[in-house]
Design a binder for these strands. Structure first.
Lengths: 148, 148
DNA sequence: TTATAGAATTATAATGATTACAAATATGGA
DNA sequence: TCCATATTTGTAATCATTATAATTCTATAA
């Protein structure tokens, strides 16, 4: 795993971020866990391995990563912010049943053009809500459990 | 304006919501102010005419309206929730300069189909960020003021 | 190697939006 | 009018996030 940590270290340095222990651990977590975790989820997971870690450091670090373009915040649920290590523009699907946020590989013509109705676009935020493929298979219909 | 209040009253009754004074005032406000206000903006505006109004009532009422499909919450800024009286699926544009949320009249092919990549869609949430038409005219470039 | 300045991290308190809860008030029917 | 119920209010609580100041780490120069 040294090679992996080396590449993470390099990612930070390329972005002009000093590769400290906390930052390496958080970026490593984000690289390995692409399910769009929240700050709390990141904190809870890393706490086990890094017992001195504080929530404040997680928030600070995520803010630095955001400033430097290493991640994008997702405002989907309305309660917590989710973080997406994939900064290339893409859409998401939020499953009302299992609550997962799934990446989509669909195109947006307007974003490619660079503007809509005269407004200059710099960011794309597209997501659908509904029932994901897996939950449909399991018999979910509209977000409520149907366990007869 | 009696006719207008009558139609608002009717809107509530059709949705099975008892048309109380507070609810009429809040729905009337939402009908007249289509700029996607926050709960706080609604409270501050109505407070002047309805001095006994409480924030809790505004939040309660907005939640009822949401449940009954009279409005949609927008999670765009990450801090406050904005409310949209227009419940027909449509996109938004958030201007980083003037902070306005503007309605767009563009189509989404995937939403019309009803599913993406195997997932069943029930809600569409699409918004762009950038610089709006008006701010572009005024000389804004990338979200920072250029007042030389 | 050690001292030291600056940066990073931490603990704690504060903030701001929203919700929970219980008391007060209004409303509509008997 | 009276009463049961729903609505509104005021207050306190909650939850995610940020501010602040103290502590700890780290890189480098002497």
């Amino acid at each position: 795993m040294i090679t992996n940590m080396e590449s993470i270290k390099n990612t930070l340095q390329v972005k002009g971020i000093k590769p400290t222990y906390v930052r390496l651990k958080i970026l490593d977590y984000l690289e390995r866990n692409r399910f769009h975790p929240t700050a709390e989820e990141i904190f809870k997971s890393l706490e086990k391995k890094v017992p001195t870690l504080s929530r404040t450091s997680v928030y600070n670090t995520l803010n630095i990563f955001k400033e430097k373009g290493l991640l994008n915040p997702l405002f989907i649920t309305g309660s917590e912010v989710h973080f997406d290590r994939n900064t290339t523009p893409h859409h998401h699907f939020f499953c009302k049943e299992c609550k997962k946020i799934i990446d989509l590989n669909i195109e947006c013509a307007y974003f490619k053009e660079g503007d809509v109705e005269g407004h200059k676009i710099t960011e794309l935020h597209g997501y659908f809500k509904g029932i994901c493929k897996d939950c449909l298979k399991k018999g979910a219909t509209n977000g409520y459990h149907n366990s007869i």
